[in-house]
Design a protein around this nucleic acid. Sequence first.
DNA 1: CGCCAGGTTGATTTCGCTCAAGCAATGTGG
DNA 2: CCACATTGCTTGAGCGAAATCAACCTGGCG
Lengths: 240, 240
Amino acid sequence: MTGITRKTSGCGREMANLSSEWCALGSSDMQLVDYASLCRTIQPGELLFCEGDPCEGVYFIKSGLIGVRKEDAEGNSTLLRLAYPGDTLGYRPLLARESYRASAEVLKPGWVCFLAASTMWQLMARNPQLGTRFLQRAARSLGECQERFHETVTLSVRARFAHLLDSLKEHCALPEQNDGSPLVLELPLSRCDLACMLGVRRESLSRIIRDLERDGVAHFSGRYVRIDSDARLLEEFVTK
Amino acid sequence: MTGITRKTSGCGREMANLSSEWCALGSSDMQLVDYASLCRTIQPGELLFCEGDPCEGVYFIKSGLIGVRKEDAEGNSTLLRLAYPGDTLGYRPLLARESYRASAEVLKPGWVCFLAASTMWQLMARNPQLGTRFLQRAARSLGECQERFHETVTLSVRARFAHLLDSLKEHCALPEQNDGSPLVLELPLSRCDLACMLGVRRESLSRIIRDLERDGVAHFSGRYVRIDSDARLLEEFVTK
DNA sequence: CGCCAGGTTGATTTCGCTCAAGCAATGTGG
DNA sequence: CCACATTGCTTGAGCGAAATCAACCTGGCG
């Protein structure tokens, strides 16, 4: 276990503020969370947990960025999704009573809060609201996952990349200038990991990026993307 | 609303016996289900619900077979999954408080039992166990969906088809002869729908089938499949 | 009989993968 | 300071898998 661990007061309150699941906590629940949670720093490259490991509890992300990966025998890695501050990792295997089906790798430094499985069950038993919130979260995630599956078998890589860029707007957009200048994103991922998210080779992504620049849709420079024509970006995944 | 509708006694008990969610029902819960559920026949081609419709309740499948489909603007249809007796359809949008994100089409005739959303909430309020069961179901389905996503971007169509055949064994195998003769499946789907499940064109599936026959893995005749070499079928999705 | 739906096959094209080389930015050791 | 690896990314050439387009079975069914 790396990183600095500390007991914080106010962990429960922070979680309630940051997420739509933990806001169901009552004040006595928060006391339990404050008492039972382990809060620590995380550093890029560190693994929170590994595919196949038994699930010991959940990780609440206070800050930083986590990548959820899955690998197969031949080393083909897929980046299933990104987890941002306010997200809770590991609730799925906990509630399904399964082992982890993916690994969680830290991409940007920050703080996470660990809650043991036993604490989770205790909280859910005394506050059924919490279960309901996670039920809703699971149901929504399932819908998104099915949507994404449908998308991958239906759309071209280019369309899927356009969609990915669009969904990154929410978390990665630089503060807007009010001078009408175009939107700029700071991508939290290397080209390689971007390709992983789409399930393609990095060379293929390079070519897609070249084409998008040629067509004046967006401009890429390092980890910065300038969206030149938001309208055309959206068109990408309407038309095929 | 087509089909024959009837009030049945014993609907609740039947559901408890057939599924791992509804077995949480207590006897007074079952009475409520018996009283509030609408049971009716379903015929092939009929739609239980449509993508985009608001969710009014859940459908419990007593018998028959349902296909869950998703279509996009260009008419590309994907068969997301099959629903068998014992499955509950529509719980996801209900619990996520969303509209349906897919359509449900009857593939084989049978009986379904409809439970209105209000009844569902009532049941879950008086018996938290039921919510927990659905939470577990949602969590497991989410895991399977992520697994499937990973598979589609990682494996070849041939490997995915092999996997599909393998998973159909559970529901579609003809009764085994104890004379060592090979396993035979009766596919519940047309070639076209099989292709949909893999997200490929039917022509491509035709060719894959030809190759599997050539390689002596399985033999296809109409909707019957004889698995000649189960071992080799399993190899298909280990090796690439 | 003609007609149609579902399925197969062949020819061609397109898309993304593989392999190989090149390039820019960064680090490292003499 | 320069020679040199190393890392992350891009580009090109060739290949293979699946899509597309078109023709052609095959078995009902009026």
